[in-house]
Computed example of a mutant assay.
Amino acid sequence: MIITVTLNAAIDKSLSVPNFRLGRRHRTVEQRTAAGGKGVNIARALKTLGQPVIATGFAGGPTGTRIVDQLTEESILNDFVRIREESRTNTAVYDPTNGQQTEINERGPAVSEKELELFRDKLLYLARGADMVVMAGSLPRGVDSDIYAHLIRELRKSDVMTLIDTDGEPLRHAARAEPDVISPNVLEAEELVGHEFNDDEDRIIAVGEMVEQGAREAIMTLEDGCVACVLVDGHAQRFRVSVPTREDVAGVGAGDAFLAGYVAARYSGKSPADCLAYGVACGAESTNHLGAGLVEAREVDRLLSDVEVRALSAPAEVS
């Protein structure tokens, strides 16, 4: 079983608005509303890919009820802690004429210490029957930035694999807690290591730096794939994985689809290189859909033949 954790779950509205301009009135040509938050998006993709998954986190107020109801309608197993304050609503506007995206994410509810303790107990209970726990996304108000780090340490006692996709201080604390995998995007990785990247060589070096901070493995997602430092037969191996650029319908949630694909392949026992390739194919396929966590398994399999995986023995090999 795979568990996904979404502490700041949401209702996500995705709107396609041609020639979007601030300060003007617009009409959508396509729209989609769904339960969201990074962990929820990952759970949705995992369900589509045929993997056993249960989504957990916080859900509050009528919006929280809607989140749970929508997941149930999608036949995604879920077990959320109900909280007093209202869960958030996020809006993403995609302009199909130029490919630009505008995202407006609410801060989310405040969570009390009692509610947080209830969640800890629930997660540790669910983890008894789990192989992997994916913790993803921002934190709601009132939750300390080291919460993921604490959960990682607790889950390690249950011999559960932990994967983290977040940013800022929560990512910094989480990396030091020695999770199995961290998966930031470029901006998140730059913030974590403390400097900008100019090219692939910088990025390949950076995934090694992220591992040095504590994570066993590090994967940095890019627009055309990823760079990674993962374990192969117990030894660190760097990879550059890429897929040809393509015209997107929308790119919101591509990183979530990547991580879902990677987790699905890893849960199935595939090799590290194959896991990365499958993740990249899922991320690329998801850009064909308006809304996060949406993939078509047949199209992912078709895209796999276009994915290039390069194993690198040292950063200096990157051209």
Rank of each mutant, 00 (worst) to 15 (best):
Y262E: 12
E299F: 06
V93N: 10
A34Q: 14
P184T: 03
G253I: 11
P184D: 03
D69P: 10
S112M: 11
D301W: 01
A254F: 05
D167G: 03
P62S: 07
A264K: 06
L163G: 05
V81M: 06
I204M: 14
A281S: 00
A110S: 15
G50H: 01
E117I: 07
R176C: 05
A110V: 11
A277H: 01
C275K: 02
I205A: 11
A174C: 04
R32F: 14
V29A: 05
R298M: 01
G291C: 02
E217L: 07
Y267M: 10
L46F: 00
Y94L: 12
T6E: 01
Y278K: 00
V211C: 15
Y278I: 00
V249D: 06
V263A: 15
A260M: 09
D233R: 13
R153G: 06
E247W: 09
R310M: 09
L294G: 00
N78P: 08
Y125T: 14
G50R: 03
D180S: 02
V307Q: 09
F239I: 12
D224A: 11
S286C: 06
K13M: 02
M220N: 07
L294W: 12
G293C: 04
V133R: 03
G291M: 02
D79R: 14
L231E: 10
G251W: 11
R203N: 05
D202G: 13
G142S: 04
A43T: 02
I147T: 09
R88S: 09
A177N: 03
D202R: 12
S242R: 15
V307W: 11
G251Q: 15
A273Y: 00
T48D: 02
S313N: 14
L222G: 04
V252F: 14
A277M: 02
R120P: 07
V93G: 09
N90S: 14
L22K: 13
R310E: 13
A297Y: 04
A254K: 03
T4I: 00
D131E: 12
I2G: 01
E308S: 14
T6G: 00
G57F: 02
S87N: 13
A273P: 00
